[in-house]
């Protein structure tokens, strides 16, 4: 790993917020992610299909939410320094045909490993006042 460009390990404190972002997801965002990722499941762009499988409507790709969470951490960590990233998808993010769904991301230091010089960053992701990801954790390689 290229840790030279990573954030400094020394001085990090548990609970410290290292990054925050609010993102507006529209249908355009979902179509863009579908094309970029190759995930063309119609529940991410077709209302009728989404409702026929019991969803409240078109929902964002879980991987779009996870990928954006990674980008929020990465803006602080530096590109290539998130060495591990995991999450559970606990709640869908419905995205309206017109307008946006607001998703907020808060990344905090959850644990520190002085020997490996890595920080575990815990990411809270919320839409409409409710958490949409469970146990969203990134391990960042620090300098």
């Amino acid at each position: 790993m290229s840790t030279e460009n990573g954030p400094s390990f020394d001085g990090l404190e548990l609970g410290e917020v290292v990054a925050e972002r609010q993102v507006e997801l529209s249908r355009d965002s979902l179509v863009r992610y579908a094309g970029a990722s190759g995930d063309f499941n119609p529940i991410h762009y077709n209302e009728v299909v989404a409702e026929s499988v019991g969803l409240p409507g078109v929902i964002a790709h879980g991987m779009l939410t996870m990928g954006t969470a990674a980008s929020v951490v990465e803006e602080w960590a530096g590109p290539g320094n998130v060495v591990d990233l995991q999450t559970r998808f606990t709640r869908p993010v419905p995205v309206p045909a017109i307008g946006e769904a607001t998703v907020s991301f808060t990344a905090k230091v959850g644990a520190l490993d002085a020997e490996a010089r890595t920080a575990r960053i815990d990411i809270t992701v919320e839409n409409d006042g409710q958490k949409v990801l469970g146990k969203a954790q990134a391990v960042v390689s620090c300098a």
Partner: peptide, 11 residues
Amino acid sequence: REFADAVDARS
């Protein structure tokens, strides 16, 4: 680049 644009990765 396309993927970075889609997930709001700004670097």
